[in-house]
Every structure is written in structure tokens, then in C-alpha cells.
Design a protein around this nucleic acid. Sequence first.
DNA 1: CATATACCCATTGACGCCCATATAATCCCA
DNA 2: TGGGATTATATGGGCGTCAATGGGTATATG
Lengths: 151, 151
Amino acid sequence: MDLFVSKYINKIDKKGRVSLPSSFRNVLPKANRNEIILYKSIKTPSIEGCGVGRLKEIAKRINNLDFFSEDYDDFSTSIFSEIITTNIDKEGRFLIPEELKLYAGINTEAAFFGQGHYFQIWEPKKGLKNTEVSRIRLLKEKKSLRMMLTQ
Amino acid sequence: MDLFVSKYINKIDKKGRVSLPSSFRNVLPKANRNEIILYKSIKTPSIEGCGVGRLKEIAKRINNLDFFSEDYDDFSTSIFSEIITTNIDKEGRFLIPEELKLYAGINTEAAFFGQGHYFQIWEPKKGLKNTEVSRIRLLKEKKSLRMMLTQ
DNA sequence: CATATACCCATTGACGCCCATATAATCCCA
DNA sequence: TGGGATTATATGGGCGTCAATGGGTATATG
């Protein structure tokens, strides 16, 4: 599987280390399997992460926005200037920078949520709440979640 | 046959393993015959499953949504983070995650129902009950449909 | 020199792999 | 065509490996 899927809740130890779920590590290209990038999610109090290869994709997305719009500046500033690269140790663990932990309200545990080509890291309770709200919003709006899944 | 059809009731052993019915295994592409994805059914207290190929389809579809829209987040959260991939061992067995077993009320036995391009896993009694209710509903609708047509 | 980070090793529990058996299905040949 | 032999499937259990976690120590970096 070459997508980030499922969710995991891992502990943060005294040194601040947390294991990137094994299935997430396997998504990273064999070449750069010991490095990921992290940045603040724009729309939620969470951290987003992915392999370094994904940077190009993000750049493309932003490039597709209207160059003269405020969004363009906002996104490119908030995302690019805030991106942090972090190394994964031999055991598959990495450090979440203090600033990002604060932003996401993370303390002793981190919840990893697969999002396909990237993933999110949440304070567990907030993350689970968010999933629920997301699902309810989709069902309420009668958006065809079912079609997405079954057709 | 490249469709999931028929129904089977299999035991869950002490280790939590259950055999994926042989005919279901044969539906999976030879390439990814040792991995399936599972997720909570939206409308019923059951688990739905299918091969990983479907997941890639879904990923493609979500990726085509506006990256910065709320829908994008909702879909990718509700789908990717809720999907669980699980491996099938040499004997054709797999583990049903605890969370999904709870959702479906499954304990010692699992009932597999073919649904064409995907399948459902039920607590046996609930599953049989559901087929019956389904059948009755269908008959009722047929009846009223016929009345509509002939009156 | 002090703090932070990387590397090494250890522990625990879960999971995958292997082997075994019983029952059912299929085959094959007289 | 009948009946024994072979194969497949569902199931059970032992055991090694790996993932998640904890901690000690070296190294780096300012």
C-alpha cells in the first residue's frame, strides 16, 4: 500500500520521541525513508506530514491558485515558510518540534490519521472528535460518501 | 467469477484470526492477494471490505476535489483515516481489528456476505436478520411498484 | 561545558510464518 | 460409474520476528 491510511495513537516518551506508525514508514520512498516534513495544518489545529517528495505536489497545488489572490500569498507563506524537516531514527521514531506540539495541543500522546498522500497528527481526543464531525457533516450534506466508497 | 457472492459463516479463533472465504480470496487480484481493506459500513452495523485496488480508485477521486475545500478534508478524513488495511496470511486468514468487531458486535463468528464489488462482515444473527428484512422490504416495494404500474 | 539529538541495546506483546489435522471437495482410474 | 486417493479449505497451535517503547551513552552544536 502506497497510501497513508488508518489511524494510530502512539506515546511520546520523556525525550519527546514518537514512533511513526510502521505502515506510514512503508509509504515513504526507500530512498528518503528517514526524513519527513511537517507543517501546521491550515484549517485545523493539527500537524500535517508527508515524505519530502510530496513537496513538489504541494507547490503545484499552490501554483494552481490565482497568482494575484490573497490566498496565493497566504498559502505559500503559511506552508512553505513553516515547513520543518525532521529525521526518523533507526527505530522509526522522530521528534515533533515544540512549536508544532503547541499548535496541535499535543502532550503525551499523538494520534496519526492517514489522509492518502499525507497524514495528520492530532491530540488524540481532538482528532477523534474531528473525524466524527467530518463524517456527520458529510452525511448531513448528503454528499455521496457511499458513492465514493462503493462505486 | 470476479465478484463477491454468496454467504459464509466462519469461526474466529483464539488469536482473533478468521478465514476469508476461499471464493472471496479468488476475487482479489493475484498481485495483491494478501491484503484487503476494511471499514465501517455507513448504513449498517457491519464491516465492509474489498481489495486494495478499490482504494486507489477512491484516492484518485478524492484527489480530484479542490485541495483547499472543506469537502476535500472531510472526504479524506472520513475515508482514509477510517480505512484499515489488513494482511491475509498463507492460510487465507486475517485479523479483524477490535474497533471494527465492536462496531459490528462480532465475537466468535463472522458472517461474510458477498455484495458484488465488495463484501460485508456481520455478526451472524444480525446478518441473517438483515437479509430477511432486506428481502421483505424488497417484496413490499415490488408490490407497490406493481400497483403503481397496473393501476 | 551544557543541552539536545543520534545511536545502541533491551523488553514486551502482537503478528506473521510454519507445521499439523480434520473435514469436504475433486480427481482419477479400474 | 464407484470407490479410493489426492487436493483444498477451515481450523488449531508453536515459535520467531518485528513494532512500539524505554533507557544509557556517545556525539554534536552552540
